[in-house]
Amino acid sequence: MSMHDDFYAGIYWSSRKESVEECARRAELFFRLLSQCDPTYARWFEQANSRKKALQLQFEPTFGTLLRFFKSKKYNEGSFGVSFSAWTGHEQDGHGSSVMLSCGCAVTPPPNSCLIYLPDKGPGAERVLTVPVLTEMIRALVLAWEPDDGGIISRGYQERRDQPVGPPQMGWLMYFSHRRGALPPLPAPVRVEPIADKGTLVILTPERFNGHDLAHVALADQVRGLLDEAGVLKDLT
């Protein structure tokens, strides 16, 4: 029987100085598109020092509210841009989700990223951890933030490597912007599809990927080798 694997969604982009207004516009689009992926993402709370306090901080992720947040000393880090996190309010461990966002930064190396920690228990996990929902999640991330790369990252696969595999990291689903060049032909059962005019989504397996499954690991290693040979994994900075 395979060991359990868990996942997070992560996208990353290089130095891109943006105003708090632009960051808030992108964030509003992101939260709106994410809410359409699954009911897990229907409500949001600011993070706090305790669960009780955080549950008092529910907010609607509108442009105006996000702009107010991003201008505040709590979230605005000056030349380092905006750093913001939010939580879905699910009190049972593993049933909810959270977002960590860093944007608007032009320093090098840039911390610009958007991470979604995915549910790994309960009905939410059963719904979310499927190719159709995760595809829409990556689409939401890409359309809002226009990253260089990212994906649905398998912790199990990362832990099997002596050194962290990345960037970009290998995952169940992976995204590569057109800045990274053309993708090579990839072996079955890998599927490739465009995301608007932004870049390409690579789906390693139609079933749930498992970084402890030797066949899945071999496929991920093979795909990584092909992408590396094609120059898709080169450093963009």
Rank of each mutant, 00 (worst) to 15 (best):
A54I: 05
W44V: 04
F59I: 09
G156K: 00
M137E: 04
E207D: 14
K74Q: 12
T88C: 13
F209H: 03
K71I: 01
G94C: 05
R127Q: 01
E146I: 07
R155V: 14
R208W: 05
R180H: 13
D235R: 06
I203C: 05
L173R: 02
L226E: 15
E229G: 02
E21Y: 02
R161F: 08
T40R: 01
A24C: 02
Q36W: 00
G211W: 04
I152V: 14
L134C: 11
Q36F: 05
Y75M: 11
L214C: 09
F80V: 09
Y157T: 05
L66C: 11
K198G: 07
M170W: 01
A215K: 04
M1T: 12
Y175E: 10
R161K: 12
L129T: 01
L226G: 07
K52V: 15
E21W: 01
G124I: 02
A86S: 15
M3N: 11
R161P: 04
K121T: 08
L219G: 13
L57S: 13
G64L: 11
F176A: 15
W13V: 04
I195L: 03
K71D: 07
R16L: 14
T237H: 07
A230Y: 05
C23N: 13
I116L: 14
R179Y: 12
F176C: 11
A125V: 06
P206N: 11
R208Q: 15
H178V: 10
F45W: 09
R139T: 12
R160D: 06
P206E: 15
F45V: 13
Q56D: 15
F59V: 09
L204Y: 00
L214Y: 01
C37S: 08
L186N: 13
R68I: 09
E77T: 10
A86V: 08
P206A: 08
N49R: 06
